[in-house]
Design a protein around this nucleic acid. Structure first.
Lengths: 137, 137
DNA sequence: ATAGCGGTCATACTAAAGTACCAAACCTAT
DNA sequence: ATAGGTTTGGTACTTTAGTATGACCGCTAT
């Protein structure tokens, strides 16, 4: 949010400056059009570069959260299963997950098996990879 | 590589076009300096935006590769082990890794065991998580 | 209220992963 | 050429993961 405001504020300022300078250049006549164009080109090239920079930091998390909910529903993954999936990705064993979630290892195995079939994976490592690709981690 | 060439080629072309147009505009006199400046601004703004777009695809791997090498050496992880690590992260079983790399399952197990101790992990899932945090994937 | 779903747990089994220990072939640098 | 690390492979074993099946409880929508 703050970044967007900064960027557009900067753009507006840059435009104003640009036309002021061009006016001055024409009146005084000590600046050729080529130089003005070159400066403009460099200026806006820099602005474009700066604009792009943080955009991945903004789009990535947003898309992740969105894909999260949508994908989970479309795959029929329950909240509990998603919780287990997170612990699998963290590298915990079934027994450790059971201890963390106050469950029996049997229950964890049930959830894991269910997850594997829903994610169309044969191993927990594959499930983690698929989930990561889908953005549900 | 190809992308870099395209980008710089495009930049050079844009510069040439820019000066040609400015020449023509001055000679014919039917274009105001402001319009030329505006066009230039837009053009290079677009170029800047385009330039930045694939840069995360180029910088991110670059930084990853840097951390890669450093971390791998400090942990004593060999090239072959790193290769196996990648396949583990992709969700392959030991047997599948063996088939892909034309090895016996025994050898893969040896590499995996070595990886686990070097990454201070108890399970392959944990090894993947640690490797991911360290940026060696 | 009853059928269905999510969550829990158990048993019994097979498959995969991981450990320990050993050993040979191959580079590479001294 | 010889020491050391890497890569490869084996056997034998324990542990963990995963499957299959059945069962019970609680909630909820029809």
């Amino acid at each position: 949010m703050k970044h967007t405001i900064l960027v557009f504020g900067g753009l507006i300022l840059a435009c104003l400056l640009l036309f002021r300078v061009s006016e001055y250049a024409l009146v005084s006549g000590d600046l050729t059009v080529e130089i003005a164009l070159a400066v403009t080109a460099l200026l806006f090239l820099g602005i474009g570069l700066y604009l792009r920079q943080p955009s991945p930091l903004k789009e990535a998390p947003a898309s992740t959260v969105l894909v999260d909910e949508a994908q989970l529903k479309s795959l029929g993954i329950s909240a509990r299963e998603h919780e287990v999936l997170g612990h699998i990705a963290a590298g915990l064993s079934n027994r450790e997950i059971a201890e963390v979630l106050f469950l029996s290892e049997s229950t964890v195995k049930t959830h894991v098996s269910s997850l594997l079939s829903k994610l169309d994976a044969k191993r927990r490592t594959q499930a983690v990879e698929r989930a990561r690709v889908m953005g549900i981690i």
